[in-house]
């Protein structure tokens, strides 16, 4: 099933990353390799730095004044914190889905076309085709194809989140970052999104932050366990859940805290 498990190509490689908000250090010496066409889950208690780490990968933290990253983050062997990185291009290559579904207050169509227009695609025919393709991929097409010009805010929470995923993949990114994408959704919507992730992993590299251990176990190939700004353990998901090496990891998995 997880045919890419043994693929040893690295998509993104983080090495000795320290991260600060002002003087406060929130990540310490993190090193992690993200494998191509795999789902990597980042797990850990609240405030452990997993979301910050996710946002390092497309430099969304740049928006926070006083945020500072030290270390190397290589995307296809290019340092994304290097001087000649184009952040706009980086975010087009590394898409993001947020915790709360955040469609823009525009029509479904305009939400989907937003990034394409930024990319400079003007051909209306092409835009429409790409949008249809992505909406089909997220199996939203059947539900919205007759109301593309209705407000995206009129969709249900689960539909909104699938729209946000469709909006990310219409950009044809290489990686998709998901920050607890199901935490605001009901179980049925959650299942749909998990199934979607398993389909998408054939084309993309996915990193997901999750609070939910069952979810990490269900969808991910690799799991990283964060605790108080440290990456305590990083291994194949099966290893982490069946043979954790750290005591803290084991306790967390067994639900003794967190």
């Amino acid at each position: 099933m997880k045919k890419n498990e043994n693929c040893d190509h690295i998509k993104l490689s983080v090495h000795h990353l320290d991260f600060f908000y002002g003087k406060k250090q929130v990540l310490r010496k993190i090193s992690m390799d993200i494998h191509k066409h795999s789902i990597t889950a980042l797990m850990g208690p609240s405030g452990c730095g997993k979301s910050t780490f996710l946002r390092v990968m497309n430099r969304m933290n740049d928006l926070i004044p006083e945020a500072r990253a030290i270390g190397t983050v290589l995307l296809d062997n290019e340092d994304i914190y290097g001087n000649n990185t184009d952040v706009v291009k980086l975010r087009q290559r590394v898409g993001m889905v947020f915790q709360q579904p955040n469609p823009l207050p525009k029509s479904i169509f305009d939400n989907m076309a937003y990034g394409l227009r930024i990319k400079g695609i003007k051909d209306k025919q092409k835009i429409a085709e790409l949008i249809e393709k992505s909406l089909k991929k997220t199996s939203l097409w059947g539900e919205v194809k007759d109301e593309l010009h209705k407000s995206a805010l009129s969709l249900s929470g689960g539909q909104q989140q699938r729209l946000c995923i469709a909006r990310a993949i219409v950009m044809e990114p290489e990686m998709i970052l998901m920050d607890e994408p199901c935490s605001a959704l009901d179980p049925i919507s959650t299942t749909k999104i998990e199934e979607l992730m398993k389909e998408l992993v054939d084309d993309y590299t996915i990193v997901i932050v999750t609070h939910n251990m069952q979810q990490a176990q269900r969808v991910s190939d690799w799991t990283g366990f964060f605790y108080m700004g440290d990456l305590l353990e990083f291994d194949k998901t099966k290893e982490i859940f069946h043979h954790p090496k750290e005591k803290k990891t084991q306790e967390y998995i067994e639900g003794r805290w967190g």
Binding site: N58, M60, L63, V88, K89, R91, Q92, G95, M96, F98, Q100, N102, P103, L104, P105, Y114, G115, I118, K119, C164, R167, A168, M171
Partner: peptide, 22 residues
């Protein structure tokens, strides 16, 4: 809302583009 700005930046928009379109 901050979420709208994040959506825009996440899709590769610049600050100026976000101001004009969102």
């Amino acid at each position: 809302p901050k979420a709208w700005r994040e959506a825009s930046y996440g899709l590769g928009a610049t600050k100026w583009y976000t101001i004009i379109h969102v």
